[in-house]
């Protein structure tokens, strides 16, 4: 790739307790492009976003965002850097004591000195983009999961950040809002020259908008490339995931002893006892 890198992830290791999540991953996320990070559940995709946002610290290796080492920054510098990022959480994570309008207005109120009338216009425009301008008076408790995530997206783009991290944006969306969201992510990226990182396992939608993809499995990057090259990839691990096949080298089951010994072994033991 000849693009300017916005995020550089170099040899990052991370573990929770004794469970090793990343075993030396390297990634380059180019500026102004949509980069997708895919992989089976439990491979640490969300963890990776939290590492990029500086909420978690890697055990080894470093992560540079726009040339700054996220985990070497002071608390103040880190918060300044975060003003340039937007993050869409899986749960939406809306502030429960504020209504929809105030949730979207929150970043504008704390980080800008704009007059109220302008904040109102900006918030309504962002809510219009996600189709929820009419829901501005509702409280987060009155929203469905999909709607909450769209409000959260409006909040994430309120400050027009340079980088947006999307954590599973397509989960729980009906087909209509899914189509709108896919378009929205693409349009935001093109119109504002945003750098977007999409974590997802919705293959079709992700392949349709991503410029470049990374596939994670077993704590490592197992494949990377454009949607086209990934589709054509012959690696069984890659094609199993991309085509959603139940059988293949990536196990569907969480590690366990065999079903036979788990069930029959127990029965034999009970009978004998």
């Amino acid at each position: 790739m000849t693009d300017v890198p916005f995020i550089e992830i170099e040899d990052v290791h991370f573990s929770r307790g004794s469970h090793e999540i990343f075993r030396g991953i390297n990634m380059i996320i180019p500026q102004g492009k949509v980069t997708a990070i895919m992989g089976p559940s439990g491979t640490g995709k969300t963890t990776l976003l939290k590492l990029i946002g500086g909420q978690l610290t890697p055990d080894q290796g470093r992560i540079l965002v726009d040339g700054q080492n996220v985990h070497r920054l002071s608390r103040k510098a880190l918060f300044t850097l975060r003003k340039r990022m937007g993050m869409l959480f899986q749960s939406g994570a809306l502030f429960s004591d504020l209504n929809v309008f105030e949730n979207v207005a929150f970043p504008l109120r704390v980080h800008t000195n704009l007059p109220d009338a302008m904040i109102r216009d900006l918030v309504l425009l962002k809510l219009e983009a996600v189709g929820l301008r009419g829901a501005r008076h509702l409280s987060p408790a009155e929203l469905s999961g999909g709607m909450a995530r769209r409000v959260a997206l409006a909040r994430a783009i309120a400050l027009d950040p340079e980088l947006i991290l999307y954590d599973e944006p397509f989960v729980g969306q009906d087909p209509i809002s899914m189509g709108v969201l896919v378009q929205l992510i693409k349009r935001l990226n093109e119109a504002l020259a945003l750098t977007s990182v999409v974590v997802s396992h919705d293959i079709k939608e992700t392949l349709s908008i991503a410029d470049y993809l990374y596939l994670l499995a077993d704590g490592q990057v197992v494949a990377e490339g454009t949607p086209h090259t990934l589709n054509a990839n012959q690696d069984p691990r890659v094609s199993q995931f991309v085509h959603g096949e139940p059988d293949g080298p990536v196990p569907f089951h969480y590690p366990a002893e065999t079903l036979y010994s788990d069930i029959l072994g127990q029965a034999t033991a009970t009978r004998a006892g």
Partner: peptide
């Protein structure tokens, strides 16, 4: 605690508010 459990504190951090 509930704000923490629903990731409100984390999202506030990501907005750049301590």
């Amino acid at each position: 605690g509930l704000m923490k459990a629903t990731e409100q504190l984390t999202s506030m951090e990501m907005i750049g508010v301590d």
